[in-house]
Each structure stands twice: as structure tokens, then as C-alpha cells.
């Protein structure tokens, strides 16, 4: 029974099937909200799926063998890491939780930007390298408040996500979640923190040199990052001890979509900041929120 549950969790929900379909849905929702707020009609519902299929059908440009291999392996690894992160989300109690799974989840989520930095540098394009360098600095900037907030949340529960959702106190939870929400636009390359992808300004940033199927994989990895981060926020935000599975799933989906809507609206209504401004913003407001959450945890409140 436990194996069956684990298999369902890996392949169906919140694993493969849900993750891929939700990633297309979230990419569409973000573009649609952006368009509606600009007074446009926006892309049709199936657009991200057709974009993905079309990219898969393009013939990649010939490259030296090693470079071609690395440029394919990096996006494949990013997709795999993000799928793993989504499958780890404890939406339903599976009985397979272990202390410290928060560390594994965060590590998988962090692999994405790391591979993107590598991907930018191996593409050997000036714009790819510029995007990668910016992404590397951004990682240092937003991860400080992000990780502090997660540590504050997990302090009392052996860094286990499922226990953490029930043990964290409300003041700590509120402050830490606010800090995490603040970091999400930066992690997803959204305005006002879209510095590393900065479309048109540095061409396409990290993905400038990626074509056809390789680009399709990066797009999928980006969609899965949306699912993983929105899902992480959802499982951390509402404790549901002893609630029926259907309700757990519904609450999880509702909060995930809410996060996407919130981030998309914020992205559509702001303009891009500079790197120094972003750093100041995160290290002041982000750290203030996350640091006070950590302070409250340590004080036992």
C-alpha cells in the first residue's frame, strides 16, 4: 500500500502528470494575466503546450560534440531536479516522510538556478555569460532571506516539511511566508527582479544560444519551477492535520493558483530594478522579515 501511494505521488500527483500539466497551465496563466492587465486578449489556453511541441520539432544547430552534449545535459538535469522537487511536496501524507526532507527539497529547487548559471557559461555567448553572471549574483542576493525564512520555519520540526506545516507558530509562519513570497519573483525571473533574464536588454540571457529541443527543456524546467515554488508556498502556508485528502488537494491547488496570480499581477505592474537596488531591497526588507521570524523562533514564540 505504501509503495502504491509513493508511486502515485511520484507519477500522478503531485509528481509527473500534475507537474507537467500544471507547469503549462501556470506559464499560460502568467502570460494571460500579463496580457489582460496590458489591455490585450493574450495567448490561447494551449499556447505553452504548442510552443513546447514546436520547439521539440526544430532541428538543433550543429555544435562541437562535447558542447552539444553539455548543452543538452544541463536542461535535462534541470527538468529532472524540478520534477523531483515537485514530487517531494507533501500534499498528501504518504508515510514516507523523513526528517530533513526540507533540505533535500531546497537543494533540488536550488539546482535549477545553478544549472542555469552553468548553462549560460557553456553556451559561450556573451549574452549567455552576462545572464549567467547576473543569475549568480541574484542567487546570493535572494537566497539569504529565503533560506533564513525556511530555517526559521523548520527550526522546531527537524527540518521536515510535513511536520513543519503543523508545528510552526502563526507569528513565525506569517513573517517567514512573507519573506518567502518576497523572494519568489526573483527566483522566477519576474519583474521587478527579472535582472538575469532581462528580455531584449541582454537578448534572452542564459538561454540566448539554446535552440529547438534544448530551449524546450529550459522552458519546461522554468514552468516546473513555478509549480515547485508555488506548491512549496502552499504546503507551508496552511496546516491541515487530519483533513480528508480531497480537501488537501483542493486547498493546495487553490493556494498555488493564488500565488501565481499574485506574482503575475506584481510582475505586470512593475518595471525592472537594477542589481544594486535589488540587493538593497532583499537584504533590508527580506532579511528584516526572515530575521525577525528566526528571532521569534529562537525566543520560543
Amino acid at each position: 500500500m505504501a509503495i502504491l501511494r509513493a508511486a502515485i505521488q511520484m507519477l500522478l500527483f503531485p509528481g509527473l502528470v500534475y507537474a507537467v500539466s500544471a507547469s503549462f497551465f501556470m506559464l499560460w496563466l502568467q502570460r494571460k494575466i500579463n496580457a489582460r492587465l496590458q489591455g490585450r486578449i493574450g495567448p490561447p489556453f494551449y499556447q505553452p503546450f504548442f510552443d513546447f511541441v514546436k520547439l521539440l520539432g526544430k532541428q538543433p544547430i550543429g555544435r562541437p560534440m562535447l558542447q552539444g552534449f553539455v548543452m543538452t545535459a544541463l536542461p535535462v538535469a534541470a527538468v529532472a531536479a524540478m520534477l523531483g522537487a515537485v514530487a517531494l511536496l507533501p500534499v498528501l501524507p504518504s508515510g514516507a516522510e523523513f526528517p530533513g526532507d526540507l533540505v533535500l527539497l531546497v537543494a533540488l529547487i536550488e539546482v535549477g538556478p545553478l544549472l542555469a548559471v552553468l548553462g549560460g557559461f557553456v553556451s559561450r555567448s556573451m549574452w549567455g555569460e552576462l545572464g549567467a553572471a547576473r543569475e549568480a549574483v541574484m542567487t546570493a542576493v535572494y537566497n539569504l532571506p529565503f533560506l533564513t525564512a525556511l530555517i526559521a520555519l523548520g527550526w522546531t520540526s527537524d527540518l521536515s516539511i510535513s511536520k513543519l506545516a503543523t508545528t510552526a507558530t502563526w507569528p513565525v509562519r506569517f513573517l517567514a511566508l512573507a519573506a518567502i513570497l518576497l523572494c519568489l519573483p526573483a527566483k522566477l525571473h519576474l519583474n521587478p527582479f527579472s535582472i538575469s533574464s532581462a528580455e531584449q536588454e541582454i537578448y534572452a540571457g542564459v538561454t540566448t544560444e539554446y535552440d529547438g529541443p534544448r530551449l524546450a527543456l529550459w522552458e519546461l524546467a522554468h514552468g516546473l519551477e513555478w509549480v515547485a515554488l508555488a506548491g512549496l508556498f502552499a504546503v507551508l502556508s496552511v496546516p491541515l492535520p487530519g483533513v480528508a485528502d480531497v480537501w488537501r488537494i483542493l486547498v493546495f491547488l487553490a493556494i498555488s493558483v493564488l500565488v501565481v496570480v499574485l506574482l503575475s499581477v506584481a510582475a505586470a505592474s512593475t518595471a525592472r530594478l537594477k542589481l544594486a537596488q535589488t540587493a538593497r531591497w532583499f537584504w533590508l526588507w527580506g532579511l528584516l522579515l526572515a530575521g525577525s521570524a528566526l528571532g521569534l523562533t529562537l525566543a520560543g514564540i
Binding site: A35, G42, A204, T207, L215
Partner: peptide, 18 residues
Amino acid sequence: PRYDVEQLGIRLEASPRH
């Protein structure tokens, strides 16, 4: 907004590779 080609899936890409 008046013409909005994104309805047709058309996107202006920054990189020729895309």
C-alpha cells in the same frame, strides 16, 4: 493592444536561435 498578435501565438524573440 489594438492588434495583439500574442493571440495567434506570435512572439517577437530577442535571439535568432529561438
